Amino acid sequence: MVRTYRSALREEQARQTRVAVLDAASRCFRRDGYHTTTMKGIAAEAGVSAQTVFAQGGKAALLLAAVDRSLVGDDEEVPLLRRENMNLLVTEQDRAAKLAQLRLVALDILPTAGPMMWVFREAAGADPEIAEAWQEYERRRFEDYRAVVASFGPFLRMDLDRAVDVYWSVACFEVLDKFLRVRGWTPEEFADWLLEFVDRALLNPAPPSASPRTRG
Protein backbone atom coordinates (compact mmCIF):
# COMPACT_ATOMS: atom_id res chain seq x y z
CA MET A 1 0.00 0.00 0.00
CA VAL A 2 2.83 2.39 0.85
CA ARG A 3 4.46 1.78 -2.52
CA THR A 4 1.18 2.39 -4.33
CA TYR A 5 0.67 5.63 -2.43
CA ARG A 6 4.19 6.84 -3.17
CA SER A 7 3.85 5.92 -6.83
CA ALA A 8 0.57 7.83 -7.11
CA LEU A 9 2.13 10.80 -5.33
CA ARG A 10 5.09 10.86 -7.69
CA GLU A 11 2.79 10.64 -10.70
CA GLU A 12 0.73 13.55 -9.43
CA GLN A 13 3.85 15.61 -8.77
CA ALA A 14 5.11 14.83 -12.28
CA ARG A 15 1.75 15.84 -13.74
CA GLN A 16 1.75 19.12 -11.84
CA THR A 17 5.29 19.84 -12.99
CA ARG A 18 4.35 19.21 -16.61
CA VAL A 19 1.30 21.45 -16.30
CA ALA A 20 3.44 24.24 -14.81
CA VAL A 21 6.01 23.93 -17.60
CA LEU A 22 3.41 23.88 -20.38
CA ASP A 23 1.52 26.83 -18.91
CA ALA A 24 4.79 28.77 -18.70
CA ALA A 25 5.71 27.77 -22.25
CA SER A 26 2.33 28.96 -23.51
CA ARG A 27 2.79 32.34 -21.84
CA CYS A 28 6.29 32.72 -23.26
CA PHE A 29 5.26 31.67 -26.76
CA ARG A 30 2.32 34.08 -26.80
CA ARG A 31 4.27 36.95 -25.29
CA ASP A 32 7.64 36.58 -27.01
CA GLY A 33 6.97 34.42 -30.06
CA TYR A 34 8.27 30.95 -30.76
CA HIS A 35 11.69 31.83 -32.15
CA THR A 36 12.55 34.31 -29.37
CA THR A 37 11.46 32.01 -26.56
CA THR A 38 14.24 29.97 -24.98
CA MET A 39 14.14 26.90 -22.78
CA LYS A 40 15.87 28.92 -20.04
CA GLY A 41 13.17 31.55 -20.38
CA ILE A 42 10.46 28.92 -19.97
CA ALA A 43 12.26 27.55 -16.92
CA ALA A 44 12.39 31.02 -15.36
CA GLU A 45 8.72 31.60 -16.12
CA ALA A 46 7.78 28.26 -14.54
CA GLY A 47 10.12 28.64 -11.59
CA VAL A 48 11.90 25.36 -12.31
CA SER A 49 15.31 24.34 -13.59
CA ALA A 50 16.16 24.20 -17.28
CA GLN A 51 16.77 20.47 -16.84
CA THR A 52 13.16 20.07 -15.68
CA VAL A 53 11.93 21.87 -18.78
CA PHE A 54 14.06 19.74 -21.11
CA ALA A 55 12.66 16.63 -19.40
CA GLN A 56 9.25 17.60 -20.83
CA GLY A 57 10.59 17.61 -24.41
CA GLY A 58 12.31 19.95 -26.85
CA LYS A 59 10.98 23.38 -27.74
CA ALA A 60 8.99 22.10 -30.72
CA ALA A 61 7.39 19.40 -28.58
CA LEU A 62 6.47 21.99 -25.94
CA LEU A 63 4.86 24.17 -28.58
CA LEU A 64 2.76 21.31 -29.93
CA ALA A 65 1.70 20.31 -26.42
CA ALA A 66 0.80 23.93 -25.67
CA VAL A 67 -1.31 24.04 -28.84
CA ASP A 68 -3.16 20.90 -27.76
CA ARG A 69 -3.79 22.40 -24.33
CA SER A 70 -5.19 25.55 -25.90
CA LEU A 71 -7.63 23.45 -27.92
CA VAL A 72 -8.82 20.88 -25.38
CA GLY A 73 -7.37 21.88 -22.00
CA ASP A 74 -4.74 19.13 -21.78
CA ASP A 75 -2.19 17.30 -23.91
CA GLU A 76 -3.70 13.84 -23.56
CA GLU A 77 -3.90 11.85 -26.79
CA VAL A 78 -7.69 11.82 -26.92
CA PRO A 79 -9.17 12.82 -30.31
CA LEU A 80 -11.18 16.04 -30.33
CA LEU A 81 -14.36 14.28 -31.43
CA ARG A 82 -14.18 12.00 -28.40
CA ARG A 83 -14.14 14.96 -26.02
CA GLU A 84 -17.40 15.41 -24.17
CA ASN A 85 -18.41 18.79 -25.59
CA MET A 86 -17.70 17.73 -29.19
CA ASN A 87 -19.38 14.36 -28.71
CA LEU A 88 -22.50 16.11 -27.43
CA LEU A 89 -22.48 18.37 -30.48
CA VAL A 90 -22.14 15.53 -32.98
CA THR A 91 -24.64 13.18 -31.36
CA GLU A 92 -27.36 15.73 -30.55
CA GLN A 93 -30.33 15.28 -32.90
CA ASP A 94 -32.40 18.37 -32.13
CA ARG A 95 -31.55 21.31 -34.40
CA ALA A 96 -31.84 24.08 -31.81
CA ALA A 97 -29.95 22.07 -29.21
CA LYS A 98 -27.17 21.34 -31.73
CA LEU A 99 -26.78 25.04 -32.49
CA ALA A 100 -26.70 25.87 -28.78
CA GLN A 101 -24.00 23.23 -28.25
CA LEU A 102 -22.04 24.62 -31.21
CA ARG A 103 -22.00 27.98 -29.46
CA LEU A 104 -20.68 26.39 -26.28
CA VAL A 105 -17.95 24.57 -28.22
CA ALA A 106 -16.92 27.81 -29.91
CA LEU A 107 -16.73 29.59 -26.56
CA ASP A 108 -14.73 26.73 -25.09
CA ILE A 109 -12.14 26.40 -27.87
CA LEU A 110 -11.69 29.41 -30.11
CA PRO A 111 -10.79 32.23 -27.66
CA THR A 112 -8.05 30.20 -25.95
CA ALA A 113 -6.77 28.54 -29.11
CA GLY A 114 -6.59 31.65 -31.28
CA PRO A 115 -3.39 33.20 -29.83
CA MET A 116 -1.55 29.87 -29.84
CA MET A 117 -2.55 29.27 -33.45
CA TRP A 118 -0.74 32.44 -34.48
CA VAL A 119 2.39 31.23 -32.71
CA PHE A 120 1.99 27.80 -34.29
CA ARG A 121 1.66 29.16 -37.82
CA GLU A 122 4.57 31.56 -37.36
CA ALA A 123 6.81 28.74 -36.16
CA ALA A 124 5.74 26.51 -39.05
CA GLY A 125 7.13 29.06 -41.48
CA ALA A 126 10.71 28.44 -40.39
CA ASP A 127 10.80 24.99 -38.79
CA PRO A 128 10.24 21.90 -41.00
CA GLU A 129 9.19 19.72 -38.04
CA ILE A 130 6.55 22.22 -36.97
CA ALA A 131 5.50 22.83 -40.56
CA GLU A 132 4.71 19.14 -40.89
CA ALA A 133 2.74 19.27 -37.64
CA TRP A 134 0.84 22.31 -38.92
CA GLN A 135 -0.20 20.47 -42.06
CA GLU A 136 -1.38 17.55 -39.95
CA TYR A 137 -3.31 19.92 -37.70
CA GLU A 138 -5.05 21.48 -40.71
CA ARG A 139 -5.90 18.02 -42.05
CA ARG A 140 -7.40 16.99 -38.71
CA ARG A 141 -9.29 20.29 -38.39
CA PHE A 142 -10.90 19.72 -41.76
CA GLU A 143 -11.88 16.15 -40.87
CA ASP A 144 -13.26 17.20 -37.47
CA TYR A 145 -15.26 19.99 -39.09
CA ARG A 146 -16.57 17.57 -41.68
CA ALA A 147 -17.89 15.34 -38.89
CA VAL A 148 -19.54 18.34 -37.21
CA VAL A 149 -21.18 19.60 -40.39
CA ALA A 150 -22.22 16.08 -41.41
CA SER A 151 -24.05 15.74 -38.10
CA PHE A 152 -26.33 18.57 -39.28
CA GLY A 153 -27.11 16.46 -42.37
CA PRO A 154 -30.94 16.53 -42.28
CA PHE A 155 -30.90 20.32 -41.91
CA LEU A 156 -28.27 21.29 -44.52
CA ARG A 157 -29.39 23.55 -47.37
CA MET A 158 -26.44 22.56 -49.63
CA ASP A 159 -24.42 19.45 -50.33
CA LEU A 160 -22.07 18.28 -47.61
CA ASP A 161 -18.79 19.06 -49.40
CA ARG A 162 -19.81 22.65 -50.06
CA ALA A 163 -21.08 23.11 -46.50
CA VAL A 164 -17.83 21.75 -45.03
CA ASP A 165 -15.76 24.09 -47.20
CA VAL A 166 -17.79 27.08 -46.05
CA TYR A 167 -17.65 26.17 -42.36
CA TRP A 168 -13.94 25.34 -42.51
CA SER A 169 -13.22 28.74 -44.06
CA VAL A 170 -15.22 30.68 -41.47
CA ALA A 171 -14.60 28.81 -38.20
CA CYS A 172 -10.86 29.44 -38.17
CA PHE A 173 -8.47 31.43 -36.03
CA GLU A 174 -7.78 34.00 -38.78
CA VAL A 175 -11.44 35.04 -38.81
CA LEU A 176 -11.59 34.86 -35.02
CA ASP A 177 -8.58 37.17 -34.74
CA LYS A 178 -10.19 39.77 -36.99
CA PHE A 179 -13.32 39.85 -34.86
CA LEU A 180 -11.72 39.70 -31.41
CA ARG A 181 -8.34 41.42 -31.69
CA VAL A 182 -8.89 43.78 -34.63
CA ARG A 183 -12.54 44.72 -34.16
CA GLY A 184 -12.79 44.23 -30.42
CA TRP A 185 -15.65 41.73 -30.28
CA THR A 186 -16.08 39.61 -27.18
CA PRO A 187 -15.90 35.80 -27.42
CA GLU A 188 -19.62 35.70 -26.62
CA GLU A 189 -20.41 38.05 -29.51
CA PHE A 190 -18.33 35.95 -31.87
CA ALA A 191 -20.01 32.73 -30.71
CA ASP A 192 -23.44 34.30 -31.25
CA TRP A 193 -22.42 35.42 -34.73
CA LEU A 194 -21.06 31.97 -35.61
CA LEU A 195 -24.29 30.34 -34.48
CA GLU A 196 -26.37 32.74 -36.57
CA PHE A 197 -24.08 32.26 -39.57
CA VAL A 198 -24.41 28.49 -39.47
CA ASP A 199 -28.16 28.72 -38.95
CA ARG A 200 -28.74 31.14 -41.82
CA ALA A 201 -26.02 30.19 -44.32
CA LEU A 202 -25.73 26.43 -43.99
CA LEU A 203 -29.12 25.21 -42.78
CA ASN A 204 -32.58 25.17 -44.24
CA PRO A 205 -35.01 27.68 -42.72
CA ALA A 206 -36.27 26.42 -39.39
CA PRO A 207 -39.89 26.41 -38.24
CA PRO A 208 -40.61 29.42 -35.96
CA SER A 209 -40.56 27.16 -32.91
CA ALA A 210 -37.08 25.78 -33.78
CA SER A 211 -35.03 28.99 -33.73
CA PRO A 212 -31.52 28.56 -32.22
CA ARG A 213 -31.25 28.82 -28.46
CA THR A 214 -28.30 30.65 -26.97
CA ARG A 215 -26.99 30.29 -23.47
CA GLY A 216 -25.48 33.48 -22.20
Rank of each mutant, 00 (worst) to 15 (best):
R162W: 12
R121D: 10
D68P: 07
L89W: 01
F190V: 11
G33D: 04
P208L: 02
T52S: 06
Y5S: 09
E12M: 15
G33V: 12
F190Q: 09
L176K: 13
M116L: 14
F54W: 07
Q13R: 13
T91I: 00
D32Q: 15
A163N: 07
M117C: 05
R31F: 10
K178N: 10
M158L: 13
L9E: 15
L71S: 06
R157I: 10
Q93T: 13
R141Q: 11
E12A: 13
R103V: 01
G73Q: 06
E92P: 00
L202G: 03
F155E: 12
V48F: 05
D94Y: 01
V72R: 15
G73T: 09
L89E: 03
A133N: 01
E129Y: 05
R141E: 05
V119K: 00
E143I: 11
N204M: 13
L71E: 06
G114S: 14
R69W: 06
E189W: 00
L9Q: 15
V78G: 01
E92W: 02
A123R: 01
S169H: 08
D161C: 06
E129T: 08
R183F: 09
Q135T: 07
V19L: 14
D192E: 04
G114Q: 14
D144A: 11
T112A: 13
F54S: 01
R83A: 12
G216M: 09
P208S: 05
F173C: 00
D165S: 12
L9I: 11
A50C: 10
R82W: 15
G47N: 01
V119W: 01
D144H: 08
R82Q: 15
L156D: 05
G125Q: 03
P205F: 04
E12R: 14
A14P: 08
R27E: 15
S151K: 01
L9P: 05
V198D: 02
E76F: 13
A201D: 08
L22G: 00
V2P: 09
R3L: 13
R95A: 02
A50K: 05
A191F: 05
M39R: 04
A113W: 02
V90Y: 00
Q16R: 09
V105T: 11
A191H: 03
P111F: 02
R157D: 13
F120N: 03
M86D: 07
E122A: 14
I42M: 02
E77P: 07
G184M: 06
S209E: 14
W118N: 11
A206G: 00
D165N: 12
Q135V: 06
A100K: 04
Y137W: 09
A123F: 01
R15I: 09
T112W: 00
E189N: 04
W168T: 13
V119A: 04
M1W: 13
A14K: 14
V119S: 00
A206K: 04
R200T: 11
R6F: 15
T36Q: 13
I42W: 01
G73A: 10
A131S: 11
G125E: 03
K98F: 03
K98N: 05
Y34H: 07
V53Q: 03
L88R: 12
W193R: 04
V72E: 12
T38A: 03
L203Y: 02
R139Q: 06
G58K: 07
P115G: 01
D199V: 05
S26V: 05
A61M: 10
V170T: 08
F190L: 09
R139L: 03
G125C: 03
R31S: 07
G114R: 15
D127I: 06
R181W: 04
R146E: 09
